[in-house]
Amino acid sequence: MRLTEHELTVALTGVAKTVLASSRRGRKRGADIDQTWDEMDRFKRFKLLDGIGTQIFPVLTDLPDVEVPVGGRPTFTEQEIRESVERKLGEDIGRLRRAVVVKTRVTLVQTALSHLPPRAEGDLRQDG
């Protein structure tokens, strides 16, 4: 799947905020997640974004190219996402751990896709 830098940034940030909100720290504080995000220092944000990015970027770029109309978002079935996750996962982990990792990454990628902004005119235009 071809995505712009802006789309990837928005998707990654959306997933990071979702993960942060679901963490013990996010639930315990009950604070606005955007405020919590802004209060985090840059290194903590980087570590969170880096950890999530290494899990979802290979899968997002492995998804098949689909035509996305202006104002629309790409959509994929859970099976397409699962197959992409499994292709990118190494063979060196046990069956139970593999099942947990696949389920988690599928959820992370679905969350990333839900945070993608609507496609703008001219996005991914290929000139000459």
Score class of each variant (00 low, 15 high):
residue 36 T to P: 00
residue 22 S to D: 11
residue 127 D to N: 07
residue 5 E to D: 13
residue 87 R to F: 12
residue 32 D to F: 00
residue 15 V to C: 08
residue 101 V to R: 11
residue 97 R to T: 14
residue 87 R to Q: 14
residue 24 R to K: 08
residue 41 D to H: 10
residue 71 G to P: 01
residue 125 R to E: 11
residue 30 G to R: 07
residue 13 T to W: 00
residue 91 E to G: 12
residue 48 L to Y: 05
residue 103 K to W: 10
residue 77 T to D: 03
residue 39 E to H: 09
residue 77 T to R: 05
residue 1 M to H: 12
residue 87 R to G: 12
residue 93 I to M: 15
residue 20 L to C: 02
residue 94 G to T: 03
residue 114 S to V: 09
residue 13 T to C: 09
residue 95 R to M: 14
residue 32 D to L: 00
residue 40 M to W: 00
residue 73 R to M: 11
residue 72 G to T: 05
residue 35 Q to P: 00
residue 107 T to K: 15
residue 115 H to Y: 15
residue 116 L to C: 06
residue 50 D to H: 13
residue 101 V to M: 14
residue 52 I to N: 02
residue 16 A to E: 03
residue 89 L to S: 06
residue 65 D to T: 14
residue 74 P to G: 06
residue 8 L to V: 10
residue 82 R to Q: 14
residue 4 T to C: 08
residue 93 I to F: 11
residue 14 G to D: 02
residue 90 G to D: 09
residue 109 V to Y: 03
residue 27 R to M: 13
residue 125 R to G: 00
residue 121 E to C: 01
residue 60 L to Y: 15
residue 9 T to R: 14
residue 95 R to Q: 13
residue 42 R to V: 14
residue 61 T to E: 04
residue 16 A to Q: 02
residue 7 E to P: 03
residue 105 R to M: 12
residue 71 G to Y: 04
residue 110 Q to Y: 01
residue 18 T to L: 07
residue 34 D to P: 06
residue 70 V to W: 00
residue 24 R to A: 08
residue 115 H to C: 13
residue 12 L to C: 07
residue 60 L to N: 10
residue 56 I to F: 01
residue 126 Q to R: 08
residue 96 L to V: 14
residue 79 Q to L: 14
residue 40 M to V: 02
residue 22 S to K: 12
residue 36 T to G: 00
residue 29 R to V: 11
residue 114 S to M: 12
residue 103 K to P: 00
residue 94 G to S: 06
residue 113 L to T: 08
residue 113 L to D: 02
residue 116 L to I: 13
residue 63 L to H: 03
residue 58 P to C: 02
residue 73 R to F: 05
residue 43 F to Y: 06
residue 46 F to M: 13
residue 57 F to K: 11
residue 128 G to K: 12
residue 115 H to M: 14
residue 68 V to K: 04
residue 33 I to K: 01
residue 68 V to I: 07
residue 3 L to Y: 13
residue 14 G to F: 02
residue 69 P to N: 09
residue 114 S to D: 15
residue 80 E to H: 08
residue 22 S to F: 01
residue 119 R to Y: 06
residue 125 R to D: 10
residue 98 R to N: 01
residue 87 R to C: 12
residue 100 V to E: 13
residue 51 G to M: 02
residue 36 T to M: 15
residue 9 T to P: 00
residue 10 V to P: 01
residue 38 D to F: 09
residue 11 A to Y: 02
residue 70 V to H: 03
residue 117 P to H: 09
residue 5 E to G: 10
residue 80 E to I: 05
residue 67 E to V: 15
residue 49 L to G: 01
residue 21 A to H: 04
residue 25 R to Q: 14
residue 24 R to Q: 09
residue 5 E to M: 14
residue 60 L to Q: 11
residue 128 G to T: 07
residue 80 E to S: 11
residue 19 V to L: 11
residue 110 Q to P: 06
residue 12 L to Q: 06
residue 114 S to C: 05
residue 43 F to D: 13
residue 63 L to C: 07
residue 97 R to K: 15
residue 32 D to Q: 02
residue 82 R to Y: 08
residue 96 L to Y: 08
residue 122 G to N: 06
residue 41 D to P: 01
residue 50 D to N: 09
residue 93 I to N: 00
residue 10 V to I: 15
residue 90 G to F: 14
residue 100 V to P: 00
residue 118 P to C: 06
residue 111 T to P: 00
